[in-house]
Nucleic acid binder design. Structure first.
Lengths: 205, 205, 205, 205
DNA sequence: CATGAATGAGCGTTCATTCAT
DNA sequence: TATGAATGAACGCTCATTCAT
């Protein structure tokens, strides 16, 4: 009797509406923050009744879980696209980071929402699973990048685990900085340095 | 008419009680997460009536603001102590990071609370000021470390802004990883690498 | 387009299912009371989907209306049988009441449902018509009993209207008592007295 | 933390408001019937927010329970007054019934509400206790009337239990008739006969 | 200094019903 | 004939906050 939420939209109309609600939730999260994003607000933003939000997503928690998944999907896709778009695979490491950074900072609301959900995930098992899944996919993506670089004659001078963890942590930390302070010169310079460091870890053979 | 919250406790008893409430709030935040930490729960944890929480701290927001300040204070103090405790100032960079990491991961609840508040701060002006203030102090502390290293004959090969931003972002990113996955081997290795990189940026003259 | 509910069941299967739903509703009403008897509960009890209940009976109100009619039918039939079964018509008054009481208290759920519907009928025009109709038939039945008694040489010493109204009110009042307190000695004695009084009102010529 | 509902009004204002809500509920019950009397409707009728209804009365059920108690109180008081007002105690039986009937039919809403609650009580333990309590007090009152009649030289020719049960059942049955059909001639005549019968059961010595 | 009363906002559930196929 | 999807209404619970003392 439940509409299976987002994963299996029962009817075109339902799917459209569920998607609209997710979009609205993302806008709210980006604009108002996690705790200020109430069901009513999302409903108003989406132009549906509050009841409908709970019809498509069983609870506030479930809505955010779906949203986290959706955000993760979008980010991973954006990152994938950014990497795939690289003409010269040899640049994978050099250009990769910059493209990924651009992809990640393209939508502020997305990031705010991601961090809201991430923080909440620390004490919420359900969100944690979703966020973990996203991060795992991120790690996989990074690992593939490393393999690609190697295939292109690069020699990775550090352990893959370290590289992956460092890049992920670096991304998160820098993104958090970006969220709070915006595009400051320091941040820009630091990103450049980070990128340079990464490149130095994967020199051409 | 208002008791000025924590900054100016009217009586010893009041001050004690206010502190107890702050402690309780920290425990709740660490255990239950930001949004699940309601005034009632804090009150129960502190063993006072819900109304009392609002008596000492004018609102939920104010409570968390106070808490953020208190957390920041503790962390900064811990970091300061960690650094001051270094016997050989020449090790400031090498050992500094490791001490600071230990200080930061000493109390998980503190970190959970810090991130909860940080995330919320993205869309909350008041919290933002407090969190910004904490980060500024963190940056100052890092800057002093750099100066200290220079005074001890080290040559810092990167721009101070970059170093400070990178270390802060690195700390945040790694801490977020630690919160979610705990003391994994990857994380440990990455921390080691991070530390090594920092050291390489500040070689002895 | 509508299946005319119970009165004109389209197919044997439909008729059977509609009857099952009515039976289930009666059980629910007897067990859970009027306001706790929801369509879902009836559906569960009948082993059909909630939607089906509304398919056979256009609304909750219509279902209860049908049920009231069905209950009325059953009770009237039971009363008729009870009276018809009297061997000596001269006992019509004496034994009649006792037989009718037995018929009425044979199925508690039936009575609970009847009173539920009756009370609701006070403010519901549709149910009121159905309940009124039932009471009218009850009154007719009582009137016939009086005629029968007269035909058997009894002399009715009170106005028929009074007799009918009194017996009906007596039945209702006693039934309400029975529902709430069960077969208490007081109730039994009172029924005996009521019966004796009725007999005294219709002495043999 | 709960306001103890009606039994112990915390403040004058609260008591007034709680009373207003009870009055509103009575009006709704009398006008719309039991199942159509929602919290919102009561709140609107009382001119308070729905939340307030649940603040003073913990639930819809509790509200009706309180209301039942209040109705019982009023009716018992009205009956008491009716009896106390009798100048010649010797008339207790004769005039008593008529006065009580007048008292009971003075407020239709009261009766509708009483029956709504009574019917619901059949399957609701909480309401049942309240309704039972009311009926017990009614029985006590009737018993006292019998004693009074005896004290005034009447000789009661039937068992007290029977008299009490019969009068109660008679009242209920006739009241139900009155609710459904109003002041019909039959009803009036029947009441007269009922009264006459009662008087015959308690002849002067 | 401390507290209980009062109240608006939010969440999530069940219910009855209509829509669309 | 039968059914799932969609939806407004009601209920009742928690939360944060203000009022009044």
């Amino acid at each position: 009797m439940r509409p299976m939420a987002f994963s299996a939209p029962p009817t075109p109309k339902g799917a459209r509406q569920a998607q609209e609600i997710l979009d609205a939730a993302l806008r709210c999260l980006g604009r108002d923050g996690f705790s200020a994003t109430s069901l009513s607000r999302v409903a108003d933003e989406a132009g549906v009744s509050k009841r409908m939000v709970l019809y498509y997503f069983d609870s506030r928690e479930a809505l955010f879980d779906q949203l986290a998944e959706s955000i993760g999907e979008r980010l991973i896709t954006a990152l994938d696209d950014a990497i795939d778009g690289l003409e010269d695979p040899a640049e994978a490491v050099t250009a990769g980071f910059s493209e990924m950074w651009t992809a990640i900072t393209a939508d502020r609301a997305l990031l705010v929402a991601l961090f809201g959900v991430t923080t909440e995930a620390v004490t919420d098992a359900r969100l944690d699973r979703t966020v973990s899944n996203f991060k795992d996919r991120f790690r996989d993506l990074l690992r593939k990048q490393l393999d690609l670089a190697r295939a292109n004659g690069r020699r990775i001078t550090v352990d893959d685990d370290i590289a992956v963890t460092a890049v992920l942590a670096g991304f998160l930390g820098l993104a958090l900085e970006w969220l709070e302070r915006g595009d400051t010169p320091e941040l820009e310079k630091t990103i450049g340095a980070f990128q340079a460091m990464l490149t130095s870890l994967a020199p051409p053979a």
